[in-house]
Simulated scan of single mutants.
Amino acid sequence: MHRIIQGCEIKSVSANPSYYVSSNSYTLEDFIELVTRASDFKTLNKVCSLIRTQYQFDFYAIFARVNRVNEAPICYFIREHDNEWTRHYEAEQYMFTDPGVRIATHHMTPFNWSSNRFANLKTQLSPKELQMSHDALDYGLSHVFNAPFVNKNGDCGLVRFINLDGKSSLDEDSRQQQSKTPELYYLASYVYESLSRLLKAQKTHNILSEREKDILLWTAIGKNPAHIAGNFNISENTVCKHLCNIRRKFEVRNTTHAVAKAISMQIISL
């Protein structure tokens, strides 16, 4: 899903709906290695599913806000799978009234949300935040572990592990919570950094349009603008305009440099 809401470009992504179940038990170091080595979103989703399974959560969700120069920020809402709550969350645009998201834009301390915590904090919530929180309880969200992150560029994110239907893998008053919360926050920090890396790579790869990639590839193999124009049934002037746009996007002065940069960034390959 791709839309503009409240000055932000929204990209909603449902990860692979398959549930990843493993009988293996992973150490903290195992998970860190798997997250760090994730080379695509599908792999990262698989690792996050393994993490939430081992820590006895029902599903995970990630919010990420990425600022851009002279453009609206991009807000990514990534969920492990569709369910009644995630569909309702999107339909009601709760990304903008979610108290957890608000907290994530200013703080970096992990926190657990539950019905008990909600009862203690509801006087501090706005009416819209109260509505969102009431709905979450009505849909069975009994416990949510929240790990917020903010970087020096003002980008922020929130990694969540969620329990449904009255279950709680972390009792707020138990010693178990004291031991698991630091581990989960530590793992979530790697998840957020890996996601940021993949989003940055995606943005870099998508810097050129498909037509610009095609024209640059043909240029790279030695074809001149006239030949390229004939191949794509466009004018030579259009080809030259595309090459000019490519140089501008790459911030280079000549097409040879643009070709070299595209190859080094793995945008085109010979």
Rank of each mutant, 00 (worst) to 15 (best):
residue 259 V to E: 10
residue 127 P to R: 04
residue 75 C to S: 11
residue 221 I to T: 11
residue 185 Y to D: 08
residue 50 L to R: 13
residue 142 S to G: 13
residue 210 E to K: 06
residue 113 W to Y: 06
residue 238 T to P: 00
residue 27 T to P: 05
residue 89 Y to F: 15
residue 163 N to T: 03
residue 232 F to P: 01
residue 197 R to Q: 05
residue 140 G to M: 06
residue 227 H to C: 08
residue 40 D to A: 11
residue 101 V to N: 00
residue 246 I to E: 05
residue 57 F to M: 07
residue 155 D to P: 01
residue 84 E to C: 04
residue 140 G to H: 02
residue 92 E to S: 13
residue 56 Q to S: 11
residue 72 A to R: 12
residue 58 D to K: 03
residue 1 M to C: 07
residue 106 H to G: 09
residue 24 N to G: 01
residue 53 T to M: 14
residue 5 I to P: 13
residue 179 S to A: 11
residue 245 N to L: 09
residue 37 R to A: 15
residue 101 V to M: 04
residue 98 D to N: 14
residue 201 A to I: 03
residue 24 N to P: 02
residue 195 L to E: 05
residue 88 H to I: 00
residue 238 T to H: 05
residue 240 C to K: 09
residue 8 C to Q: 03
residue 19 Y to V: 10
residue 234 I to F: 00
residue 254 N to G: 03
residue 207 I to F: 05
residue 126 S to Q: 07
residue 51 I to W: 10
residue 198 L to F: 08
residue 130 L to K: 12
residue 54 Q to R: 08
residue 2 H to M: 10
residue 132 M to I: 00
residue 254 N to E: 07
residue 107 H to D: 06
residue 250 F to M: 05
residue 152 K to P: 02
residue 206 N to D: 14
residue 42 K to Q: 13
residue 46 K to M: 05
residue 17 P to D: 11
residue 171 D to A: 05
residue 76 Y to V: 04
residue 188 A to V: 03
residue 25 S to N: 08
residue 18 S to I: 15
residue 120 N to P: 00
residue 164 L to P: 01
residue 241 K to A: 08
residue 88 H to D: 01
residue 110 P to E: 09
residue 120 N to M: 00
residue 147 A to K: 12
residue 74 I to C: 07
residue 140 G to N: 02
residue 227 H to N: 11
residue 99 P to T: 01
residue 187 L to H: 09
residue 268 I to N: 14
residue 248 R to A: 07
residue 192 Y to E: 02
residue 188 A to M: 02
residue 55 Y to V: 01
residue 192 Y to S: 02
residue 251 E to A: 08
residue 166 G to N: 10
residue 228 I to Y: 07
residue 192 Y to W: 15
residue 99 P to I: 01
residue 31 F to A: 08
residue 98 D to G: 07
residue 119 A to L: 06
residue 201 A to M: 12
residue 95 M to I: 15
residue 173 D to Q: 07
residue 167 K to N: 14
residue 172 E to N: 14
residue 63 F to L: 03
residue 38 A to D: 14
residue 144 V to C: 06
residue 7 G to F: 11
residue 250 F to L: 09
residue 144 V to Y: 03
residue 66 V to M: 06
residue 115 S to C: 04
residue 176 Q to V: 11
residue 137 L to C: 04
residue 34 L to F: 12
residue 237 N to G: 02
residue 242 H to M: 06
residue 251 E to V: 06
residue 251 E to C: 04
residue 162 I to M: 02
residue 184 L to P: 01
residue 130 L to A: 02
residue 111 F to R: 10
residue 14 S to R: 00
residue 62 I to N: 05
residue 91 A to N: 09
residue 114 S to R: 01
residue 179 S to C: 05
residue 161 F to H: 01
residue 263 I to T: 12
residue 157 G to S: 10
residue 270 L to Q: 10
residue 76 Y to N: 06
residue 147 A to C: 15
residue 228 I to H: 10
residue 172 E to P: 14
residue 162 I to S: 02
residue 66 V to L: 06
residue 153 N to R: 09
residue 62 I to F: 06
residue 232 F to K: 09
residue 113 W to F: 09
residue 131 Q to S: 10
residue 117 R to C: 00
